[in-house]
């Protein structure tokens, strides 16, 4: 240590001599010159030091590290059985939510929530999942009904059809695809103690849904009309009025419609939670109609009529059991 301290002055003197040739003024001028040529602000031309520092070797190492990280994450998902394409933000992301009142005896809260959802086939379709929530015995929400609406982007407000007595309401859950010009909809209500779909309709071209005098007015476009024997490629507007009914435990029939005004050429369908006989009193105004599968959509509890002439007609929904009360609906065909 003393030896070093002894030559410390020598080290300093020699280093001063060595560095005395350094021209600080010249160096500072070169720095300022670079700054004035926008080097310092825009850094257009990176100095060689940067090219040396950030080079392909480092980039390659970073790429390898990132690749290993991706492989590790992929392996974790693979061995846990999860699909890689699953994105949490596409599974269960709520799009809209609406509180509804079914006027039932449960007095529990009910909500309809629409979620974005994809099928597990790795194809992004932009589907919507509608879930009807109700509060259970312990107060927690449970799923009472759910239905997927394919290739739909826009949920519509839930429409509620009230019945004029102690019967619970029926709701219409629908979605629209404005760009593809079709709608999907579900008519949902109680069947016993369960909430079920009375009717499901998908890909209703040019579809519109409205509630008119307690009936569901559906408008759709169809190519040609077999009834009119006009087999052509033109799209025709078809209006169908769905009259919902419910049968209670006593076998009594209840409907949301008492009087209905329709146009000649429109169709009527009687739609219920159970399959029950439906008759008309005047055979020459409303005629039984057996539509194609695109109308039926596997909805078995639906009876269709087509309008034959104008006039006043009555539709009678007969009870299934003796002692049950039927219901009449007056229809004015204009």
């Amino acid at each position: 240590m003393n030896e070093i301290n002894d030559i410390k002055e020598k080290i300093k003197k020699e280093s001063e001599r060595f560095f005395s040739g350094f021209n600080n003024e010249k160096m500072s001028k070169s720095v300022l010159s670079k700054i004035n040529s926008n080097y310092g602000e825009k850094r257009k031309n990176k100095p060689s030091i940067y090219k040396i520092t950030f080079n392909s070797s480092i980039a390659a190492r970073i790429s390898v590290i990132l690749a290993c990280f991706v492989i590790i994450i992929t392996s974790v998902f693979f061995f846990k059985g999860k699909a890689l394409y699953e994105k949490n933000d596409m599974m269960g992301k709520p799009v809209s939510q609406q509180k509804i009142d079914l006027n039932d005896t449960s007095y529990n809260d009910k909500w309809i929530t629409f979620f974005k959802i994809n099928k597990p086939n790795k194809v992004l379709q932009g589907n919507l999942l509608a879930v009807l929530w109700e509060t259970g015995i312990n107060g927690d929400y449970q799923m009472a009904y759910s239905s997927m609406f394919e290739n739909s982007s826009k949920p519509e407000p839930v429409r509620i059809i009230a019945f004029n007595n102690e019967q619970p309401s029926i709701i219409i859950i629908s979605t629209k695809s404005p760009d593809k010009q079709y709608i999907h909809y579900r008519v949902v209500g109680y069947s016993g103690s369960r909430i079920v779909a009375f009717m499901e309709q998908n890909y209703v071209t040019g579809g519109e849904i409205a509630v008119i005098d307690g009936a569901i007015k559906e408008t759709r476009l169809v190519p040609g009309i077999i009834y009119d024997k006009k087999q052509n490629n033109d799209m025709h507007e078809v209006v169908t009025y769905y009259i919902p009914y419910q049968i209670n435990e006593s076998g009594d029939i209840y409907t949301s419609v008492e009087n209905l005004k329709i146009s000649k050429g429109d169709y009527i369908a009687v739609l219920g939670n159970e399959n029950t006989p439906v008759e008309t009193l005047t055979p020459n105004l409303l005629v039984d109609w057996n539509p194609g599968s695109e109308f039926l959509n596997d909805n078995k509890n639906t009876k269709f009529f087509r309008t034959e002439n104008t006039g006043q007609e009555e539709i009678y929904i007969k009870p299934l059991y003796e002692g049950g009360q039927g219901r009449k609906i007056s229809v004015l065909i204009q």
Binding site: F19, M27, S28, I49
Partner: peptide, 30 residues
């Protein structure tokens, strides 16, 4: 400036490289 140059030389033992470091240091400072 001189101290920066000297320090760079202590590391690199090359005058040209030390001058490059000097320039880059003060550009960063700016």
């Amino acid at each position: 400036g001189k101290k920066v140059y000297q320090l760079a030389y202590y590391f690199l033992r090359d005058r040209q490289m030390a001058e490059d470091i000097y320039q880059e240091v003060f550009l960063r400072v700016y």
